[in-house]
């Protein structure tokens, strides 16, 4: 019994102390692997289990990039799986793209890889997210 009690106390202590406690949404900018585009990914809410929506802002030398073909993949690299639901991307104008239906099927470390191509140029950036 003492062991079980100790285990429960350890778990409870971890639950109350260890969280980041942040309520802000996601906001991060990355330069593409080929250095062509800057990828600015934001979401109003903290990424969470279930369906999420992000906004991707694509710029080249500070200018918005419209008309690009954008794809986004979600992957839990350590577990070797994504999710079964397809991610949707739609252009919102002024270099912005709405990325919807991003399903995080479990808590943990996920990668969101955003790829953009226009004419002969192609670039991509990977964002690391901790889904609580």
């Amino acid at each position: 019994m003492r062991t079980i009690r100790w285990m429960l106390m350890a778990v409870l202590a971890a639950c109350t102390d260890g969280g980041d406690g942040s309520t802000a949404g996601f906001d991060e900018t990355k330069t593409g692997d080929h250095g062509l585009y800057a990828f600015h990914l934001t979401s109003a809410d903290v990424p969470q289990q279930g369906s999420n929506t992000f906004t991707l802002e694509l710029t080249a030398s500070g200018s918005p990039v419209d008309g690009a073909t954008v794809t986004v993949d979600a992957l839990m690299p350590a577990h070797g799986h994504g999710s079964g639901t397809p991610i949707t991307v739609s252009a919102a104008g002024n270099g912005r793209y709405t990325v919807g239906n991003v399903s995080f099927t479990m808590a943990g470390a996920w990668d969101l890889t955003c790829s953009a191509s226009r004419a002969a140029s192609q670039d991509s950036a990977t964002f690391h997210l901790d889904v609580p």
């Binding site: 577990h79 994504g82 999710s83 639901t85 995080f104 099927t105």
Partner: peptide, 10 residues
């Protein structure tokens, strides 16, 4: 499988 599920929360 994880990639065959249809529920966004898994």
């Amino acid at each position: 499988a994880p990639w065959a599920g249809r529920d966004p929360a898994g």
